[in-house]
């Protein structure tokens, strides 16, 4: 973010606007989005053409692409948010921002909103993939709903988490490594074998974990066709995590320090 004169009230809009320009008018946002579409293309083509995956049930392929879209889209938003504050600190621009009358809460809020647009872009890009793949088995509506509802909640939670990590990380490398590591740890339970996942401990592990719950919901609705009415509880932890982690990120804005990026 470049320094400019910012009014004290409602300045989150200005921060968000500046961050959006930095993200989308530079190559940064498009680079991340390009990597996202490339990976999603490889996943979609592999899922659609792999005989072992596709022959038994085309819904399996839709489930894989849906989960990849949520996982990779969340990762893309996380990469942007994890850079938001630690990046400023590392580039030495955080000092200039902190000496302005800009409320720190507005700074974090503006950056959070800007980082969230990466998820929105990833979501929009993934829609044609899902529409094409879900058309055959007739689950287009479910596929779109899953990625919009579950994906957005998971992405909101993880974007806020990335920002909170970025706020306390002295270097960008630390922030990125910690954020991506957390994402991997949270996503791991969704890969549990179905027998383990059905057990009491496995079920709690998945339902309490926002990322695993979102990915499991995608699988249940798109592949197992179990329906939203029986799986809505999987949305609880992503929704709670989105609210709590956003509150945490904003709360941590009061503890923003210049630190030593070395």
């Amino acid at each position: 973010m470049t320094s400019e004169t910012l009014p004290a009230s409602g300045s989150w809009r200005l921060v968000a606007g500046q961050e959006l320009r930095d993200l989308w008018l530079s190559a940064k946002g498009l680079s991340v989005l390009f990597a996202y579409t490339l990976l999603l293309s490889v996943m979609a083509y592999a899922a659609a053409s792999d005989a072992d995956l596709n022959l038994l049930d085309a819904r399996e392929s839709v489930g894989i692409v849906g989960q990849a879209a949520i996982g990779l889209g969340t990762l893309a938003a996380l990469v942007v948010s994890a850079d938001a504050i630690s990046g400023e600190r590392e580039r030495g621009t955080l000092e200039m921002i902190l000496v302005t009358p800009l409320p720190r809460r507005d700074l974090v809020l503006g950056k959070l909103l800007a980082a969230t647009t990466m998820w929105v872009a990833a979501l929009l890009v993934s829609l044609p993939y899902l529409a094409v793949m879900a058309d055959g088995p007739g689950v287009v509506l479910d596929a779109v709903l899953v990625i919009v509802v579950a994906g957005s909640l998971v992405a909101a939670a993880l974007t806020a988490l990335g920002l909170a990590v970025s706020a306390v990380s002295m270097s960008n490398r630390t922030s990125l490594a910690a954020s991506v590591g957390l994402l991997l740890v949270l996503a791991a339970p969704s890969q549990l074998p179905s027998i383990t996942a059905k057990g009491a401990v496995g079920s709690v592990l998945i339902k309490a974990n926002p990322v695993a719950a979102g990915l499991r919901l995608t699988n249940q609705v798109l592949v197992k066709q179990t329906g939203w009415s029986s799986e809505w509880t999987l949305l609880v932890s992503p929704a709670i995590a989105a609210v709590l982690l956003t509150a945490l990120a904003i709360r941590m804005s009061s503890r923003l320090e210049l630190g030593d990026s070395r």
């Binding site: 008018l25 530079s26 190559a27 498009l30 680079s31 989005l33 390009f34 579409t37 490339l38 999603l40 293309s41 490889v42 979609a44 083509y45 659609a48 053409s49 596709n54 085309a58 392929s61 890009v125 044609p128 993939y129 094409v132 793949m133 058309d135 055959g136």
Partner: peptide, 23 residues
């Protein structure tokens, strides 16, 4: 397969072109 080829090629191509133009 499943008619995905146009999308898996076009989506990265469009964004890649946008990225090149930006650079």
């Amino acid at each position: 397969p499943e008619g995905v080829l146009p999308v898996v090629v076009a989506a990265p191509a469009v964004i890649g072109l946008g990225l090149i133009s930006r650079l």
